[in-house]
Computed example of a mutant assay.
Amino acid sequence: MVGLLVVSHSEKAAAGIVEIAAEMASDVSLVAVGGDPDGGIGTDADAIAAGLAEADDGDGVVVLVDLGSATMNAELAVEMADTEAVLADAPVLEGTVNAAVHAAGSKATLDSTLDAAEEARGMTKL
Results as ranks from 00 to 15, higher is better:
residue 12 K to S: 09
residue 12 K to M: 08
residue 14 A to Q: 10
residue 14 A to L: 04
residue 15 A to D: 15
residue 16 G to V: 04
residue 16 G to P: 08
residue 17 I to W: 02
residue 18 V to I: 03
residue 20 I to N: 03
residue 21 A to P: 09
residue 22 A to G: 14
residue 22 A to P: 06
residue 24 M to W: 10
residue 24 M to R: 11
residue 25 A to H: 11
residue 26 S to N: 15
residue 26 S to W: 01
residue 26 S to H: 11
residue 27 D to L: 08
residue 27 D to M: 05
residue 30 L to K: 13
residue 31 V to T: 15
residue 32 A to T: 09
residue 33 V to C: 10
residue 35 G to V: 06
residue 36 D to R: 09
residue 37 P to T: 09
residue 38 D to L: 13
residue 40 G to F: 04
residue 44 D to T: 02
residue 45 A to D: 04
residue 47 A to D: 12
residue 50 A to S: 14
residue 53 A to G: 14
residue 55 A to W: 07
residue 57 D to A: 14
residue 58 G to T: 11
residue 58 G to R: 07
residue 58 G to F: 12
residue 58 G to A: 10
residue 59 D to T: 01
residue 60 G to P: 09
residue 61 V to F: 00
residue 62 V to G: 10
residue 63 V to M: 05
residue 64 L to W: 01
residue 65 V to Y: 07
residue 66 D to S: 05
residue 67 L to A: 06
residue 71 T to C: 00
residue 72 M to F: 02
residue 72 M to I: 13
residue 72 M to C: 00
residue 72 M to N: 01
residue 73 N to A: 09
residue 73 N to F: 01
residue 74 A to G: 02
residue 74 A to N: 02
residue 74 A to Q: 01
residue 75 E to K: 05
residue 77 A to F: 02
residue 77 A to W: 03
residue 78 V to A: 08
residue 80 M to V: 00
residue 82 D to N: 11
residue 83 T to C: 02
residue 83 T to H: 04
residue 84 E to T: 12
residue 86 V to P: 03
residue 86 V to A: 12
residue 86 V to G: 03
residue 87 L to C: 04
residue 88 A to Q: 11
residue 88 A to G: 12
residue 89 D to N: 14
residue 92 V to T: 15
residue 93 L to S: 12
residue 94 E to R: 05
residue 98 N to A: 15
residue 98 N to M: 14
residue 99 A to M: 05
residue 99 A to R: 10
residue 101 V to M: 15
residue 103 A to W: 09
residue 104 A to H: 13
residue 105 G to H: 06
residue 105 G to N: 14
residue 105 G to A: 11
residue 106 S to V: 06
residue 106 S to T: 14
residue 106 S to Q: 12
residue 108 A to M: 07
residue 108 A to S: 15
residue 109 T to V: 09
residue 109 T to Q: 11
residue 110 L to K: 09
residue 110 L to Q: 08
residue 110 L to H: 08
residue 111 D to Q: 15
residue 112 S to N: 12
residue 114 L to K: 15
residue 115 D to T: 14
residue 117 A to Q: 10
residue 117 A to R: 06
